[in-house]
């Protein structure tokens, strides 16, 4: 059955930096087409895990595959089959909208003849076909983020990693951004997202919460609220994350 296909399969994923264990035996699956929220306090080990899942770093031990490829030996294939966007990583400010699309599509090896129609279609569905020739620098932050997302999924990856994608935008734009996420997920792209906005955790199909390098809890938001007897995901998060030792110093 397609719906239970695992896009990420992690068993005992462990990453150590000298004596510091950043990821301690993480075991979880992420299924095709789901929106998976990856939460945790600063320093809990999220970034370390995401770098491994994106093929940028290797685990110390454990079995991990992404889009069917092994994170030890098939990192190049992984990079071809994922998309990535973060608040900091955005588009080239001194290139136009169209140039950014062509640049990234080229990097992913898309044939030139498919780039233009797909780009036009994407810009039209965002309602900004007229902005194709505009420099990124001239656009408001909300549009940059929507475009950065569109670029990240332009090569139709199996999974897209969104690292705090909505930081700093106004509440209306933030919600429009989530509509894009829903659409991508309905189109079969798996979405792996981190956020500090706890209301956004409620928008995910399933959520995991990391505390001190471990996955402390995992499940659909409604299940987690019941399990931890909390009214909101914010309360669930505070209950679990407060258990952490005082300050932990990564690396």
């Amino acid at each position: 059955m397609d719906s239970i296909e695992q896009v990420i399969r992690a068993r005992d994923l462990t990453k150590r930096f000298d004596s510091f264990t950043a990821n301690d035996r993480l075991s979880f699956d992420v299924y095709r087409g789901e929106i998976f929220g990856f939460l945790g306090a600063n320093g809990a080990g999220k970034t370390t895990a995401i770098r491994i899942l994106c093929g940028l770093s290797k685990p110390t031990s454990g079995e991990v595959s992404v889009a069917g490829y092994d994170v030890y030996h098939q990192t190049e294939q992984i990079k071809e089959h994922i998309g990535y966007m973060s608040q900091r990583f955005s588009l080239y400010e001194d290139l136009t909208v169209g140039e950014n699309f062509r640049f990234y599509a080229g990097i992913y090896g898309l044939p030139v003849r498919t780039i233009r129609p797909r780009m036009d279609e994407m810009l039209r569905s965002l309602g900004i076909g007229h902005l194709k020739g505009q420099l990124i620098a001239s656009l408001p932050l909300g549009w940059k983020q929507k475009l950065a997302f569109s670029v990240a999924v332009f090569h139709k990856p199996s999974i897209v990693f969104l690292d705090e994608p909505t930081g700093g935008v106004d509440p209306i734009t933030r919600r429009q951004f989530w509509e894009l996420i829903y659409e991508a997920a309905r189109g079969g792209i798996t979405v792996f997202v981190t956020t500090h906005y706890m209301d956004e955790a409620e928008y995910c199909d399933r959520v995991s919460i990391m505390v001190d390098g471990r996955i402390e809890t995992i499940g659909p938001p409604a299940f987690l609220k019941e399990k931890h007897q909390a009214a909101s995901m914010e309360q669930v998060f505070l209950k679990l994350a407060r258990k952490r030792q005082n300050e932990r110093e990564p690396q």
């Binding site: 306090a41 600063n42 608040q87 705090e164 700093g168 500090h196 998060f237 505070l238 952490r244």
Partner: peptide, 10 residues
């Protein structure tokens, strides 16, 4: 508190 997790913000 920008970019700071919910616990540290509190």
């Amino acid at each position: 508190t920008t970019g700071v997790d919910a616990v540290s913000r509190k």
